[in-house]
């Protein structure tokens, strides 16, 4: 009993760490642009497919694949920013969101054109037996995932709270009008925030496919839905909230899946989101989309 509880909590934390990264990417974009980027997940998928393609055709080491994933995600993110968000700055939020959905369709079709099989193998982070600690087993790759996610969070924290660029980003999130008046080059910050968010998403995407050892075109939708869910649970537009939302989602999913099965896991996560939104809990009502 207790052993299950501890084991599920460990598994939930390592899944939650990737959700936290996805939610951070979403929150950065939503925080400064006040727009939801539905193509966030598909751009990550594009990076992962670029890495898989390299792996299948040439073979490459883990580090190189991670690098390709992240640069692919940033490249795809830049394309999304130019076509969907730069033209609608200060304009229609719905138009920007629908445009980002349109590019999602493009990424998905592109992925299936280049790699037509439904499933491709991806090199595992770690192949070997899990670490046994008394009654518990620790999957090494889950541990690595947790560590890498923590490192990415720390790097992001340092960027946001210890650099001038980070100051500009936080100013834009808190007081957009005052930040612009203070001489912050707003379009340039937008571009860099998009690149930063895509890079974080790329790290999350790489960790997910490398720990599962496989990739399918469903990755894009999966990453967008999990990221949105975690961001909303933690309160829209708050960076610490995104981390808490991601970890909470991971823990809830791990426990409900163990006791109730995968369908109830998803049902309960969405039910929780719906109830919290309807109840207008204080931490979720701070900012609105349009």
């Amino acid at each position: 009993m207790i052993a299950d509880l501890v084991q599920n909590t460990l598994d939930g934390l390592s899944a939650g760490a990737t959700y936290a990264l996805l939610a951070l990417g979403f929150t950065l974009i939503f925080g400064v642009l006040r727009r939801a980027n539905l193509s966030f997940g598909p751009a990550i998928m594009f990076g992962c497919y670029a890495a898989t393609w390299t792996h299948v055709n040439f073979g490459a080491g883990l580090l190189l694949l991670a690098l390709i994933t992240v640069s692919g995600a940033v490249l795809a993110g830049a394309y999304v920013e130019r076509l969907c968000f730069a033209p609608h700055r200060g304009g229609s939020a719905i138009a920007a969101m629908v445009a980002s959905f349109a590019l999602w369709m493009q990424f998905e079709e592109l992925a299936t054109l280049i790699m037509p099989r439904h499933l491709y193998a991806f090199p595992l982070l770690y192949e070997g037996d899990p670490l046994a600690l008394g009654p518990f087993t620790l999957r090494i790759d889950a541990l690595a995932m947790l560590g890498a996610a923590l490192a990415a969070c720390l790097a992001l924290w340092w960027t946001l709270y210890r650099t001038r660029f980070g100051l500009a980003v936080r100013a834009l999130i808190e007081q957009p009008a005052a930040a612009a008046l203070a001489g912050i080059n707003v379009p340039w910050v937008f571009v860099r925030v998009f690149a930063l968010a895509s890079a974080i998403g790329g790290v999350a995407g790489y960790l997910v496919v490398a720990s599962h050892g496989q990739i399918t075109p469903m990755l894009g939708m999966w990453a967008t839905l999990k990221g949105l869910l975690a961001m909303m649970l933690g309160g829209l537009g708050s960076l610490p909230g995104a981390v808490i939302g991601g970890l909470a989602l991971g823990l809830i999913e791990a426990h409900t899946q163990w006791y109730l099965g995968p369908q109830m896991r998803d049902l309960i996560a969405y039910l929780l989101l719906f109830v919290l939104l309807a109840a207008r809990v204080p931490w979720m009502t701070t900012r609105s989309a349009s």
Binding site: L277, R280, M284, A289
Partner: peptide, 22 residues
């Protein structure tokens, strides 16, 4: 969900729809 706006409303409808699908 009547008093929700923008992305909050959109996400509430999405949550309801995913529940229906499950």
């Amino acid at each position: 969900t009547l008093r929700l706006r923008g992305l909050h409303f959109a996400m509430a409808t999405l949550a309801a729809a995913e529940m229906a699908r499950i």
